[in-house]
């Protein structure tokens, strides 16, 4: 572990490990520097220019790309910086579909947070030439929506796709004012190589990428994804007796904050109206609803007749450790046979 570097940000002495950027060092010490394109899990690129700071003896530069140096004196806000930032934000606001009331990200939007902090000059915005925002909504994916009229081109989704997912199915396309995030051939996202992992949706700072049926959960519970063997930690949100959301548990070492399409979007089966809700017993060839007492009595009676090697249990890799323990204990201790197996080989 190398020595910590000491620098001064807005008069506060701050320590940070070598290689830390000024932005991260400041944020870690509760000094807010407005920023948009920087994300703590992704490579910094310095393209939004919002996190400009002044370092004594240098021209204004972006704090997200500048590593801390010993004795550095950093100013995060002065007249010049504020003016550049303001104009920058005003341009962004002007080119953004500002229909916040109808936006799924309302109140959780980083652009709102930034404009609140930076402050914008309404008169200047009104004097500017407002563009027509007419990108059609891309609703081709069943789980998320892409609204490019809200996109601020921070590139977080692009870097997420490249660095987290490794799929690289989206990138900046076109140039200048025409620039947009797109897929090969400028097609709807569903026709790309997108695997709907949703990593970009969770990281989008604005309302450009939002889950399709977003519902705020009443409460959330940390658990484990029910699908493959990765055993990803998920935080499942519930509301009104239904599972309504699933996000990665950032602290789970198995998935380190990531999820795939199934774990993030595929839990709807829990709410399915086709779920079994009562025991069924075959009567005259048909399965008919029965009470637990009835079912248990029938099973107890029947299984009593097949103890030993004429009985077998097929257990389940979908059930918990505790479930499986009880199943094999039952098979061995009650039914008197080792005929138990599950789908480990399938």
């Amino acid at each position: 572990m190398s020595e910590l570097i000491t620098l001064n940000i807005d008069g506060v002495e701050v320590k940070a490990a070598p290689g830390t950027t000024i932005l991260r060092a400041a944020l870690a010490n509760d000094i807010y520097i407005p920023h948009l394109c920087d994300h703590k899990e992704l490579t910094s690129v310095g393209i939004c220019r919002v996190c400009l700071v002044e370092i004594e003896g240098r021209r204004p530069t972006v704090s997200c790309m500048t590593p801390v140096e010993e004795g550095m004196v950093v100013t995060t806000s002065n007249e010049e910086l504020d003016q550049i930032r303001k104009v920058n934000m005003e341009l962004l606001v002007l080119n953004h579909d500002y229909d916040c009331q109808n936006c799924a990200k309302n109140s959780k939007c980083q652009l709102q947070e930034l404009t609140r902090y930076v402050g914008i000059d309404e008169n200047r915005i009104n004097a500017m030439r407002a563009p027509e925002l007419a990108s059609p909504l891309d609703d081709s994916n069943p789980y998320y929506l892409r609204d490019l009229n809200k996109c601020v081109l921070c590139g977080i989704c692009v870097r997420t796709c490249e660095e987290i997912q490794g799929d690289e199915c989206i990138d900046f396309t076109f140039r200048g004012i025409e620039t947009k995030i797109g897929v090969l051939g400028d097609k709807p996202i569903a026709e790309s190589t997108c695997v709907t992992c949703g990593e970009c949706v969770t990281r989008c700072p604005v309302g450009a990428l939002v889950p399709r049926h977003a519902v705020e959960p009443t409460y959330e519970v940390d658990t484990v994804c029910p699908f493959c063997g990765c055993g990803c930690g998920i935080t499942v949100g519930a509301r009104g007796g239904k599972v309504v959301s699933s996000v990665a548990d950032p602290d789970s070492p198995a998935n380190n904050g990531s999820l795939c399409v199934k774990g993030r979007f595929g839990l709807g089966f829990v709410n399915s109206p086709d779920r079994l809700t009562t025991p069924l017993i075959r009567k005259d060839g048909d399965l008919v609803e029965a009470s637990w007492e009835e079912a248990l009595a029938l099973i107890g009676d029947k299984l009593g007749q097949y103890k030993g090697e004429q009985f077998a249990t097929i257990a389940s890799a979908k059930c918990t450790v505790e479930d499986n323990y009880v199943m094999q204990k039952f098979t061995r201790a009650v039914m008197g046979t080792n005929n138990i197996d599950h789908c480990a080989r399938l």
Binding site: V45, C48, N88, N95, R129, L153, R175, G176, I177, T179
Partner: peptide
């Protein structure tokens, strides 16, 4: 404005805004 790469906000949006004003 046409040759701006489109990555950073001031250049992408600023050059177009300035152009629009000049055109007006």
């Amino acid at each position: 404005k046409k040759e701006s790469c489109g990555q950073c906000i001031p250049c992408r949006l600023g050059t177009t805004q300035m152009y629009d004003i000049l055109e007006d």
